[in-house]
Design a protein around this nucleic acid. Structure first.
Lengths: 217, 217
DNA sequence: GCATGATACGAGTAATTGCTCGCATCCTCA
DNA sequence: TGAGGATGCGAGCAATTACTCGTATCATGC
């Protein structure tokens, strides 16, 4: 019943490493070119130029392949972001946010369809502690930046705020990729504005008595 | 090869309407409770209490069922939103946005997993003119609201701005639903702040000479 | 009530997909 | 160099899934 998402056996020789890479690369290409339904083990093995037997030697099933792709994508991302945060410790909030946004946009726009699909596949996979840890690191990193500039931000540096920021970035970038935007410049600027706007927007002051009559019958 | 997403035959008698509804309801429940992989035609028919033969009488395949679910969801949404915009013609921008956000949040949070899955399924379906039309109506509606309050918004009322707003709302609400948020109040407020912040955030003034040294080796 | 079309049924078939296993080949190291 | 482990192979079986079709039942108009 339950789905196994961990690799079955670690490759030790050089050629088996290549086999694994070929499998992962083929899975990625099929996902982005033909979609999730087309990404079955036979098709992956064939495009990889490898037999199904070899595939199953290293992965217990296609979910494990997807999971490995996600792990690589996410951990590459988080390491880039953490280096960025560490390397801009003295910089202004706007500069740091701009760089973080740029990294996120570039990552997601490099292979938009693949990134989008991996995101949605991730939601269907069983809980993976390694992935949860990476997710936490990203959220913590956002909170750290917010905490470094207390006077400039009106949102609390909570997990919720971090999740909101991450979600709006992902949402906007995914939509842009889907709509065919490929030049990162304009998108990056808009995402940056959105993030900054959310963090700086003051709580609205309720003018007493302003109640909207229900607009629907 | 290509996938047919239009219904095969319109039900004319009452009982066949019920059959169709049962099929659509069962498909929705399987999607939200067991995920996309489990939503095959046999399972849908069984849960609907209907034979596969009956299912295929009205839908050429499972994709057509999903497409119908999406069409209903989207067109229900767009009609609610359009009524809202029309009914608040004289109101302040903030009130109108708040109501729009509320409608979106409530819709998506009513059955978060289903809404999320339908969104990702939609991306894999072939182009459907009816769905593109609904999408356009939503974007136009956002642009109309922006145009109604020219002095209060710093973004152009373009398709891109509308897409950005829609994407950040969807992104935030999806993430919140996935994280287990069920109370709409707090989420609604944060999404509202994000939208307002994006629309009002001024373009940053570049202080000349502020260039960030590359933070990575 | 009966003729006709609409609706429902579900066993059964074709196609797809997941996965195994026995055997061939390659690599490493003593 | 040869023994043993690592790697690769792919035919083929089992399980799943999509879908059809002959038959039975129901609804409606006459």
């Amino acid at each position: 019943m339950s789905v196994q998402v961990n690799p079955r056996k670690r490759p030790v020789q050089g050629r088996s490493k290549e086999t694994c890479e070929a499998i992962l690369g083929a899975a990625a290409r099929i996902l982005e070119e033909r979609g999730l339904e087309a990404a079955n083990t036979n098709a992956i093995a064939e495009l990889a130029g490898v037999s199904v037997g070899s595939l199953y030697q290293y992965f217990p099933g296609k979910e494990a392949i997807f999971a490995e792709l996600i792990r690589r994508e996410e951990s590459g991302m988080v390491e880039r972001l953490e280096a960025l945060v560490a390397g801009t410790a003295g910089c202004a909030l706007e500069e740091r946010l701009r760089l973080l946004v740029r990294a996120g946009v570039e990552q997601q726009l490099a292979r938009p369809r693949l990134a989008r699909l991996l995101d949605s596949v991730e939601a269907t996979l069983p809980e993976d502690e390694a992935l949860r840890a990476v997710e936490r690191r990203i959220l913590d990193l956002i909170r750290r930046v917010l905490r470094d500039h207390p006077g400039e931000v009106r949102r609390r540096p909570s997990r919720t705020t971090a999740r909101d920021v991450l979600a709006m970035v992902k949402g906007m970038v995914d939509a842009a990729g889907f709509a065919g935007e490929t030049r990162p410049g304009s998108l990056e600027k808009r995402v940056f504005l959105a993030v900054l706007g959310y963090l700086r927007q003051p709580e609205p002051r309720w003018r007493a008595g302003v109640v909207v009559r229900e607009a629907l019958s």
